[in-house]
């Protein structure tokens, strides 16, 4: 079993109870709205073209931040069978588990690369309907659970 998804993550607001012990791998990747995660992308002001992640630095001014669609289809996928070298910052040693990654087509918007949460790698196939979720990525030394965006099969 791998990439077990966790329950609904903390909302954007500072509600003490569910904020404790969790953080995203990086700021600005997603936000949680009404208990459901939304990926944050950008739309180019000049032509409406979508981008992910939201461009930073010199290009940032050219884009409006947008929430991307939360449902789409699996465009391609693979399984990372060995633990990557640095800069990979996931679990090491015996804690490492192979994980699935893929590209997910968000209709009319963009294709995003993502972890794919599944208990069965063999169930992955191109065209599989998927929806956005949050996946536990690793634990910090202080016990904080680090979360990453991912997609899972839509029921």
């Amino acid at each position: 079993m791998t990439n077990n998804k966790m329950g609904p993550p903390a909302s954007g607001g500072p509600t003490e109870e569910n904020q404790v012990g969790q953080r995203p791998l990086a700021e600005g990747l997603y936000r949680v709205v009404d208990g459901a995660p939304r990926l944050l992308g950008g739309r180019r002001k000049s032509d409406g073209k979508y981008a992910f992640p939201l461009p930073q630095g010199g290009d940032a001014a050219l884009y409006d931040p947008v929430e991307l669609a939360s449902e789409g289809t699996l465009w391609s996928y693979t399984v990372q069978r060995f633990r990557p070298k640095t800069p990979y910052a996931g679990p090491d040693g015996a804690a490492f588990r192979p994980y699935a990654v893929g590209y997910v087509e968000l209709p009319g918007q963009i294709i995003v690369e993502s972890h794919i949460a599944t208990d069965d790698f063999n169930a992955l196939k191109i065209g599989l309907p998927v929806r956005l979720t949050l996946i536990p990525f690793r634990q910090d030394p202080d016990g904080t659970q680090v979360m990453i965006y991912g997609f899972e099969a839509a029921a």
Binding site: L25, A26, L29, P53, Q56, W75, S76, Y77, T78, Q80, P84, T86, P87, Y88, A89, G90, Y99, V101, G102, Y103, E113, S114, H115, K125, I126, F137, I148
Partner: peptide, 26 residues
């Protein structure tokens, strides 16, 4: 590219090649 992309274990040439041929074969 942002640092999180490497930390997340998605910045690997081997994954890219696998996903490219997976889609092509499909």
């Amino acid at each position: 590219l942002p640092a999180w992309y490497g930390e997340a274990g998605m910045m690997l040439t081997t994954q890219f090649f696998a996903m490219k041929i997976q889609r092509y074969m499909g």
